[in-house]
Structure formats: structure tokens, C-alpha cells
Design a protein around this nucleic acid. Structure first.
Lengths: 339, 339
DNA sequence: TTGAAAGCGCTAACAG
DNA sequence: CTGTTAGCGCTTTCAA
């Protein structure tokens, strides 16, 4: 194990003064004589003293740590959000402890427990796709432990959250398809209990209505947000008699999986099937054809979540709020037909 | 702020016994009578007691935290490695504290400082691309604080590390190009001080030699690993008189940037320019044409780094080792010419 | 079988 | 101006 770093006690002994004198001198307390202060600060500098956060945490009952739970760590969407959270956390002198639920309810529950046991000061969470009951967050509410949800949220009447303007975004996608000549617009949704799934479905329906199109249940498919399932959902759409000429995928994974399956069948994007995703900037430009999509402001989503978190830290009684972030429909080749 | 969780003291008072009795009962210490033990454990369960890691940490001088520094958080490569680290850390009951250097030497130095100040028990690090001096790691060496490097490494005679078999991998790429009829094989390298850059350059040269090709300095370009610079490097290659018919990009970012630039110019991949990257599984299949590449076992790289870390924790005096992970050349369309 | 006390590193109220 | 003391939550001798 590593050698112990220098402590106040060590320095006090070395200088033949008391611990509290050293402590005060390091904070430039006016009570301490300038000479004493100088001597102590000099020594601290030489010895590379840095206060022990464990001791401070124990004393002040705060760890300066935020627990962050995400469905996975390996997609750009979440890592970018985490970056956003971190940037704000750092400004406040906080660290983040990241935990991945791997889209599993059980692991999410475990993570909540573990992080609380670690004495993080609160949690910033995106629900796993399996999560449809929320008792594991009750202890946080009961004890007024700061909690913020982002993207996939719940209990918004009690907990602050950050989401995209899902309804409007999905509506605009549908209309965009229509304007490009598509009439049989399909939607591949996610688990029905997730807000993102419900809201985007709502927007999809509104869009159909706005464009004077009928709702055709055959054009609605669901999947569990894994690439494999998304491919199957796409296959079902293409195999059924539904004959879609456009597909809107609920998120990154689904959109890319759909693209793969469409291409595998030798169908042309956008001419046979137009495709739009719901994703963030990075991926969409790499694929071919470049993917039209709703781009999430992911970094900002993370920042906003962190800001709401600190709002609660600083203002414990504050009522929950929901921040709705504007998204942007970025039109690329996957949805634009030549004529 | 959140209400305090229950402490041993609280429970001791409630039961009218001493703190040490409670402490012992919870550990099933044989000294405590079975009835007492049962009563105490029952109460602990009801009150959802969990030991305060700050107190434990202070007492035992260990935080059960590992600091991890990566060049960025938003690429699949690093997030996947982090997942690997986390999986092993979890098994040991450790948490990881992640810090991103954003490829900046200054931020890396800062992160080392900050993490040490947080009293992590050690560091697992991938150097930023700017890092060419290493004094900021000296304090770790001096104090025998566990340290492991991965991918971009340094001081391998003093510090354990995990790397890919860069030389052999790069050699095999070059030969693969040759077998596909390419004769003017270019390499876009990274900063010369990075081991990954040097080793892959070595392998590239070895491959040229093995195939009986001459080294042509015009076919060697460098960049700083950012997408923008990589595009410029590609442009220089294509604009110069070098006339490459194959490009090997040192990593993900570079390979994708090269692909973009090649396509932008209306050149065909692989027929005009064959392309191979050095990346991990995920991205390569999404792009078009699918990218031939050396796939890193990223998750395993993280796991191995963590294992080496715990080797040091458990065995402080152990000499440094280097784990060299096998990579795999996965051949896809971007490098295979029809005839 | 249980309790008292010291100590991990630090702050702050209280003395001197 | 500086020192003493108590206490944050816990483990671990040492006493009883």
C-alpha cells in the first residue's frame, strides 16, 4: 500500500505547534500571526499537504460525490451526457461515481443501493429499459436525497428531470416524411412503459393526423431497444403486408439496426424506404447514407441534469421541475428523395 | 441535505448496549451471545444500516476507489475499456472515479493531482496524446501507489501496462493490402512520441519489407488524432504526388476521417483507395463500406488493466509487467478488391 | 460476554 | 494569538 500522505498532525509535531494552529494558518485565519502562518503554509507546500477528504467528509457529512446511473456506458449518447454532467460537477468541486445498469432493472436497483451505501450525496439517473416500478427510489425521496432523472424519467411530479421535446420532435419527423412523398410511415417503438417511447408515439400520431394520414397499426412495431430485437422488428415490418415507405426508429440503436436490415435486403435508402433516427450528432454522419435524425443536445442534457442536481443540493425544499430541451431535425440523405 | 443514515451509535443507544457490542454483533463475533447478536442484527436490518465508508476509509486508510484517466469519454474505445475496468473493480468491491484528460497534458496532470487528493488507492491511465513527459507520475512511483497504463503507455520498465500487439497488427495490415493488389500503401500516424504511433509505424515498415516494397516517405503522414487534422492529413496524401492506393489509419478517429475525405472526393473505397483502420468492433460495421480493421479487445483490455492493478494492491513490491493483447484483423469490404 | 478508550484526520467551540 | 477538547463513524486492543 501507499505511504500515508502528510497530515495536520504530522506538520504540527514538526513545527512544535498544535494541530488547530496549523489548521487555522492554512485557512489564513486572522487569529494566527503572519509569521506563523507563513511558516506553516511554507511547510504545507513543501510536504504537498492536501486535506484528507475522508476526514472532511466524515466531519461535514458530505462526500462531494454524485452517483450517476446510465443504461450503458458504451454508447456515445450516454458518454456524452456523462461528460456534460462531469463538466458542471467539476465546477462545483464534485466528483461523479458512474454505474451502468446494463439496461437491467435488477442491476439498477443494486446500483442505487450501492451508491447510497457509498454515501454519494445524490443520484442522477436514466432509467433502464426494464424499469417500470420505482420503489427503489423511495428511500431517496423519504430522506430528501437529491435525485434527478434524464431522458428516461419517472415520477416527474416528485423528481426533477431533463427530457427532450419528444412529442414535437416525433411530430416533425412524421411531417418531414410526408413532405418527401412518404405515405406509409412506420414507427419502431421501445418498451411501452418508457416515457420516451410513449411521447414519441404520441408525436408520431399527431404528425400523421396533421398530414391527414390514417393510423395503421400494422405500421407500428415495438422492440426492446437492443440491436438484435430492432433488426427483427424491422424485418417484421418489411415482411408483413404493411409495405412501409418510411421508418422512424425510436433511437440510435434502433435506427442503425434498421439501416442494416434494410440494406441487407438490397433495398435503397431513401428511395425504397426513407429512414430517420433519434440520436445524437456523432453517429449519424458516419453511416451511409448519412442519417437524418433528431439530434439530442446530449452534452447540454448532462449539464442541465447536473444543474438541477445542484439546485436541489443548495435548495433542499425546492419543488421538482422538468427541463425540456429543444432538439433539432437535421436532414440528411437518408430521408430526402430526389423528386 | 439528506438525513443522516443510522450509525452504530444510534443503534447502541436504542438497545442500551455499547457501540463495540453492536459492531461485533454485526460481524458475528463469537464473543457476543447469540441472543444479543440476533437482536442487533434484526435492528440493523430494520434500520437499513450500512457501514459508513468514510469512517472505514479513515480508519483503514483505504478508500476502495480507483482513479481512471482516459483521453476522452465519448468514444466507444474508451468507454468499453472503462466497462472492462469496472467489471473487475466491482468484483473486488472497488469503485472507479473517472476523469477525462480531453487529450490535454495539462488536464491530465491536473487529473492525477485531483484524483490523488481524493485519496484513490491508485490510478489506471491512458496517456493523452500531448503527454511526452511523465513527471506527474513520479509521486505515485515514490510512494508506491499502484499505477497501470493501458494502450498509450510509458515508463514500462517501472509501471505495469496493457497494450495491443501493435507491431504485428500493423505488419499484418500492410501485408493484407499487398495481397489485395495495393502497392502504394500509406500510413497516417499519430504523434511520434506515443508508443502506439511508433509501434504501428514499425509494423508498417516491417510489413513493407516483408512484401518487398520500398519505404516511401511521401506515403507517411502524421496528425494529432483529431478528426479535423486527420482529414487534412488524408487530403495531403491525396493531393501530393504520392498517389496512394491504400491507407492505413492509426486509429478509429483517423480511419473514419479518412473515409469521409476519400468519399467526399468521389473516390471509391476500396477500388481507388483501400482503407484499413485500427479500432474496435462496434463502429467498423456501421460505416459504408464496412471498415476492415484491427479490432481491439477493448473490454478485455480494461479487465486486464484492472487485474494488473489489483496485483499491485495485493502485492506491493511486485515488479512491473506488460500484458500484450492479441488483436484480430477483421477483413471487411473497405480493403478487398474484387479482382 | 460486554464496555471503555484510543485513534484514523479534521474542524470549531471554548479556554487561556 | 494559540492550545485543548469534543466529535464525525468505525475498529480494535485492553479491562472488567
Amino acid at each position: 500500500m501507499s505511504k500515508r500522505l502528510v497530515s495536520l498532525k504530522d506538520m504540527a509535531k514538526e513545527l512544535g505547534v498544535s494541530i488547530s494552529t496549523v489548521s487555522r494558518a492554512l485557512k489564513n485565519h486572522p487569529d494566527i500571526s503572519p509569521e506563523m502562518t507563513a511558516r506553516i503554509q511554507q511547510l504545507a507546500c513543501e510536504r504537498e499537504y492536501s486535506p484528507n477528504p475522508l476526514a472532511m467528509g466524515l466531519l461535514k457529512q458530505q462526500t462531494k460525490m454524485i452517483g450517476v446511473i446510465v443504461p450503458d456506458l458504451v454508447t456515445h449518447f450516454y458518454s456524452s451526457i456523462i461528460s456534460g454532467i462531469e463538466s458542471i460537477a467539476k465546477q462545483h468541486g464534485y466528483y461523479i461515481l458512474i454505474s451502468s445498469s446494463n439496461e437491467s432493472f435488477e442491476k439498477e436497483t443494486e446500483s442505487v443501493q450501492n451508491l447510497l451505501n457509498t454515501r454519494v450525496e445524490g443520484l442522477i439517473v436514466c432509467l433502464s429499459q426494464e424499469t417500470s416500478s420505482f420503489e427503489h427510489f423511495e428511500p431517496l425521496l423519504r430522506n430528501e436525497i437529491p435525485l434527478v432523472f434524464f431522458d428516461r424519467v419517472c415520477m416527474t411530479d416528485q423528481v426533477s428531470s431533463v427530457v427532450a421535446n419528444n412529442v414535437e420532435a416525433a411530430r416533425s419527423i412524421t411531417c418531414h416524411f410526408y413532405e418527401n412523398g412518404c405515405r406509409r410511415i412506420a414507427y419502431i417503438a421501445g418498451p411501452g412503459h418508457l416515457n420516451i417511447s410513449k411521447e414519441r408515439l404520441d408525436g408520431y400520431w399527431q404528425g400523421l393526423k396533421d398530414c391527414g394520414l390514417k393510423i395503421d397499426p400494422d405500421l407500428l412495431e415495438g422492440c426492446n431497444l437492443s440491436a438484435g430485437e430492432a433488426i427483427k422488428a424491422t424485418a417484421r415490418l418489411l415482411d408483413s403486408g404493411a409495405k412501409p415507405d418510411a421508418i422512424f426508429g425510436i433511437n440510435d440503436t434502433v435506427a442503425f439496426a434498421a439501416m442494416k436490415e434494410i440494406k441487407r435486403r438490397g433495398l435503397q435508402i431513401p428511395d425504397d424506404i426513407a429512414l430517420v433516427g433519434f440520436t445524437d450528432e456523432f453517429h449519424a454522419t458516419v453511416v451511409d447514407p448519412p442519417l437524418t435524425s433528431i439530434t439530442h443536445p446530449t452534452f447540454e442534457m448532462g449539464q442541465e441534469a447536473a444543474r438541477l442536481f445542484f439546485r436541489q443540493v443548495e435548495n433542499p425544499g425546492a419543488p421538482p421541475v422538468q427541463a425540456i430541451l429543444k432538439t433539432r431535425l437535421v436532414i440528411r440523405k437518408s430521408s430526402v428523395r430526389k423528386d
